[in-house]
Design a protein around this nucleic acid. Structure first.
Lengths: 343, 343
DNA sequence: ATGAAAGCGCTAACAA
DNA sequence: TTGTTAGCGCTTTCAT
C-alpha cells in the first residue's frame, strides 16, 4: 500500500532499475518482448506511478506553469474561460498549472511572498493582472530568473492581450452604420481620470471617441467617475434616458452596466431595440449574459491559449524577447440593435 | 546566472552543505552568530532559491494541493471567488494550488488522464464538479491513494457543500412573510426531470416547495424544462407575467434568470418591487450582479476555505473518514422586495 | 559548532 | 539485451 517505486518493480521482475525505467518510459525497442511484457504487467499490478519530484530533479523541469494573479478581486483576471483556454493548451503539452493569488500586502514586503515565487518550483510564469499593476510586481517579475509572459496587459514584449481599441472602434462604427448619431459611451465601473487604469478601460474609451470623431460627431461619456453602486444605477440611468436629447444608442464598457441600462430603459418605457440600441463589451462567458445584447466578446480563451504558446517558446529561447500578441474581439449581433426612430 | 545551489553557497563561505542547509532553514541556534550571518549574507547575494523538487523527494510532500474540475463549462465549478477562498487558506499554510480541468473524454479512457492524476505530484485533491459527476470520476477518486475532498457536491463524507435546501426554504419564507401568496420558482437553466442534476438544483426546488406546502400554498414552477435560450426568455417571461393570476413574487434559481425576469417585468410595465418582488440565488461575486436584487448568496469563499481545512485534516489522518461540512447561504435584502399590492 | 556519509526515486552514460 | 555507476539538490543521521 506504500508508494511503489521502480526499485520495487525491478526486484519483483528480476531486472535492474534502469531497464525498468527505460521500458516504463516507452523505450521498448531496446528490450526483448518478453521483458517488456513482464515489466509492464508488474507495473500495472502494483499501480506504479512515477515520482514527479525525482523526475524534476533530473530534468530540471517541474512541468508546472505558474499563473500569477491578484488576490484583490478587482485586479483578479482569472475568468473561468481564460482558465479553460490555458488548461486546454497546457494539457496539449502535458503540463500542470500552478495558480497563485498575490496580495498587494505580499508585494509591499509586509508579508512573505508566496512559495511559488520564493522557490524554484515552476518552469515559467503567466502573469494575469487586471488594473493597476503594482510597480513592485513588475520589478519582481523582471528580477525573476524564471521566464514570464504577461496576459491581459500591455508591455513592450512578452505579453498577450486583446485589441480593445479596435473592438471599441468597430462597435461604435456598427452603431453609426445603423444611422445613430447620438451615441454615448457608458462606464459605471471606473474613474476614467485615474491614470493607472487597466489599458482596456482607456482603449475602449478612446476607440469609441476616435470612431465618433472620425464621423464628425461629439463623443459623449456617461459615468466614468468611478464605481457607481448598484443601488444608484437605475435612478441615475433613468435620469439621462429621459433627457430631451438622450442618446439613441449606447456602447457599454461592461455587461453589468449594459444590463442596468437595459432594465432602466424598459422601466422608462423605452422599447429595445426600437427606441434605443445597446451594444456592450463582455469579458466572461457568453452564457453569463442575462440578456441577448449586441456584444464585443473578449477572446479570453484564445488569450489563454496564446499565453501558454508564448510561454513554451520562451522556455525554448529564454533570452529572446517576444513581440506582443494582440488578439481581436468577436462581434455578436444579439437583439438589441436597430436604426434610430427618426431617421 | 545558473541556478544557485546549497553546494555553491557552502563552497563560497567555506562551510559544509549540511551547515548551510540548517542555517537556511532557520536552525540558527546550533551555530555561531558569525557563521549564520555569513551564510545568510552569501545566500542573499547569490539570490539562492531552494529547489522544491529536492525537498519534495526527501519529505514526500510536494506542498501542492490539486484542484480537479471539469473542462465542460457547465460542470466547471471554479468560480473566481471559490478560488480566492481556497487560495487564502492554502497560503495560510504555505501550500501551492495545482489546477486541472478534466474532460469527459479523459474519463472515458479515449484520452490519457492528465498528468496530476497519473503521477504522484500533489499531496491531496479537492474535486470541484458541478452537475452530473461521471461515475468514472468517482471511481477514479476512490481508487487514488491520494486523499480527496469533494467540494460543491454531496457525498457520504469527505465533502464540503452549501445548504441549498435551507437557503431555498428561507428565501421562500421571506417572501411569505411579506404577505405574498402567489410565489413561483423560476428555473431557465435546468431540466428538473433530469435525475443526474447537481444537488443544488434539486434542493433549491424542494426547499421552495416544502416552504410553500408548509404554508398551505400550491407551489408553482416556471421553466424547469431545460436551458431556455436567451433570445426566447423575455417573450416567454412576459407571457406568464401578463397572465390574470400571475405570481406577485418569484424566487429565481439563478441570477441570470432573475435579471431576465426583472427586465421583462419592466418591459411589461410592472414596477419592481411595488408590483412584483424578486428574490434569487447567486453563486458568484455579489459584484457580478447587474441589478440590486434580494439574493441568497452562496458561501463560495467559505466553501473553499473549508475544503482546504478538511484536506489538511485528511493529510494528517488519511484513513479517517470526515463528516460532510455544510455551510449556510447568506441572505441579502437588495431592493427588489415589497409586500404584494392587494393585501 | 561543524562535517562526513548516506539516501530520497529516478535516469543518463557507459560497460558488459 | 541488460547491468553498473554515478549524480540531480537537499536533508538527516551520526561523528568529531
Amino acid at each position: 500500500m506504500a508508494k511503489v517505486t521502480i526499485r520495487q518493480i525491478a526486484e519483483r521482475v528480476g531486472y535492474s532499475m534502469p531497464t525498468v525505467s527505460q521500458v516504463l518510459n516507452g523505450n521498448v525497442d531496446l528490450y526483448k518482448e518478453e521483458t517488456v511484457k513482464r515489466i509492464l504487467s508488474v507495473a500495472r499490478t502494483l499501480d506504479y506511478r512515477p515520482n514527479a519530484a525525482a523526475r524534476t530533479m533530473i530534468s530540471g523541469r517541474s512541468n508546472y506553469i505558474g499563473i500569477l494573479t491578484s488576490s484583490n478581486p478587482d485586479k483578479d483576471s482569472i475568468f473561468p474561460r481564460l482558465m479553460a483556454g490555458i488548461q486546454t493548451e497546457l494539457q496539449e503539452n502535458d503540463l500542470h498549472m500552478s495558480l497563485t493569488h498575490i496580495s498587494d500586502k505580499h508585494l509591499s514586503r509586509s508579508a512573505g511572498l508566496p512559495r511559488v515565487v520564493r522557490e524554484l518550483s515552476v518552469d515559467s510564469f503567466i502573469v494575469a493582472y487586471m488594473a493597476r499593476i503594482p510597480a513592485t510586481l513588475v520589478k519582481l517579475i523582471n528580477e525573476l530568473r524564471t521566464p514570464a509572459i504577461w496576459i491581459n496587459s500591455k508591455h513592450h514584449g512578452d505579453c498577450v492581450y486583446a485589441d480593445d481599441y479596435a473592438a471599441s472602434r468597430t462597435a461604435t462604427q456598427q452603431l453609426l452604420a445603423l444611422g445613430h448619431r447620438r451615441i454615448a459611451f457608458v462606464n459605471y465601473c471606473s474613474d476614467v481620470s485615474d491614470g493607472r487604469l487597466h489599458y482596456s478601460v482607456i482603449d475602449r474609451h478612446i476607440g469609441y471617441r476616435s470612431a465618433m470623431e472620425a464621423a464628425g460627431l461629439p463623443p459623449r461619456l456617461i459615468g466614468g467617475t468611478g464605481h457607481l453602486p448598484l443601488s444608484e444605477r437605475i435612478a441615475f440611468t433613468r435620469a439621462w434616458l429621459e433627457l430631451e436629447d438622450r442618446p439613441t444608442a449606447i456602447l457599454a464598457h461592461a455587461s453589468t452596466a449594459a444590463i442596468a441600462v437595459a432594465y432602466a430603459a424598459a422601466a422608462s418605457g423605452l422599447v429595445i431595440p426600437d427606441d434605443f440600441s445597446i451594444a456592450t463589451f463582455h469579458d466572461a462567458d457568453a452564457d453569463d449574459m442575462a440578456l441577448c445584447l449586441a456584444t464585443m466578446q473578449s477572446p479570453i480563451a484564445e488569450l489563454g491559449k496564446a499565453a501558454v504558446a508564448q510561454t513554451l517558446t520562451k522556455l525554448d529561447k529564454p533570452l529572446q524577447g517576444l513581440s506582443p500578441v494582440v488578439l481581436p474581439y468577436l462581434w455578436q449581433t444579439g437583439e438589441s440593435l436597430a436604426p434610430p426612430r427618426h431617421c
